[in-house]
């Protein structure tokens, strides 16, 4: 099929412009968009640094599982709070960058947009935690669930405290407090033993309970943050 013939065929047809297309398109019921599609959209616009942090965390988990199998969980527990700090920073961007008013006037409520952003990062971080736990557990021989709770608890503690501080006047006026929280939790995870906290000796049940309680507290903070988005405009 040669190009010249194709062009001749195309040129042989000629139609007038439709006169009522625009009016009809404007009246057409807009296609439904689910939350999954919104999460996907927001994921595309999250800063690359956030995804890099996830990737780096996972890579370090895999490396430390091979090199320091005994200590790897403690090291990951000290690293993941920074991923949580970055996630908290990302949730405030609409307000900080003065995009909240424009986002609010779209088909989605600002609450949905912020929730979608949090969900996209949360899902990625959860995947990092679970994959890291699997890798670390293989290296150390410890149960995977215990490892997941041990490295997830510092992440959740940072997320909870970071989101709480963001809602206070202090947090609203100071951008990087969540990273300061991450540093503090990281230091505790790394050096807790040195100050007398028997973190590595804690039984699996204790880690599980701690992670569970922190997850509930974090979920509560997420809801309160979403409720506050109304005030961001």
């Amino acid at each position: 099929m040669n190009r010249a013939l194709r062009a001749q065929i195309r040129g042989a047809f000629s139609f007038p412009e439709p006169k009522r297309k625009r009016a009809f398109m404007q009246r057409l019921r807009p296609r439904g968009i689910g939350m999954a599609a919104l999460v996907w959209t927001q994921a595309a616009y999250i800063r690359r640094g956030v995804w890099c942090a996830c990737g780096v965390a996972l890579l370090l988990a895999l490396l430390s599982a091979r090199r320091f199998p005994g200590d790897a969980a403690r090291l990951m527990g000290a690293l993941l709070p920074f991923a949580a700090g970055i996630a908290v920073l990302e949730t405030r961007r609409s307000r900080e960058c003065r995009m909240a008013e424009l986002e609010r006037a779209t088909r989605f409520s600002l609450r949905s947009v912020v929730f979608a952003r949090m969900a996209a990062i949360g899902i990625a971080d959860l995947a990092v935690i679970l994959l890291s736990a699997a890798a670390l557990s293989l290296g150390s021989g410890r149960p995977a669930l215990r490892t997941a709770a041990q490295i997830g608890a510092p992440y959740l503690a940072t997320a909870w405290a970071g989101l709480y501080i963001e809602r206070t006047p202090l947090g609203r006026n100071h951008s990087y407090l969540s990273m300061a929280v991450a540093a503090a939790v990281s230091a505790l995870a790394l050096g807790g033993e040195a100050i007398g906290l028997p973190l590595s000796a804690l039984p699996s049940g204790a880690w599980g309970a701690a992670a569970g309680a922190l997850a509930v507290l974090t979920a509560r903070e997420v809801c309160m943050t979403l409720n506050m988005t109304e005030e961001w405009v």
Partner: peptide, 22 residues
């Protein structure tokens, strides 16, 4: 909009009437 155009052209050819085609 492109879907509209494609259906419209098809209907134009079948009906030879732009108004009816729309």
């Amino acid at each position: 909009e492109q879907v509209y155009d494609r259906i419209y052209r098809y209907a134009c050819l079948r009906l030879r009437d732009a108004h009816l085609a729309e």
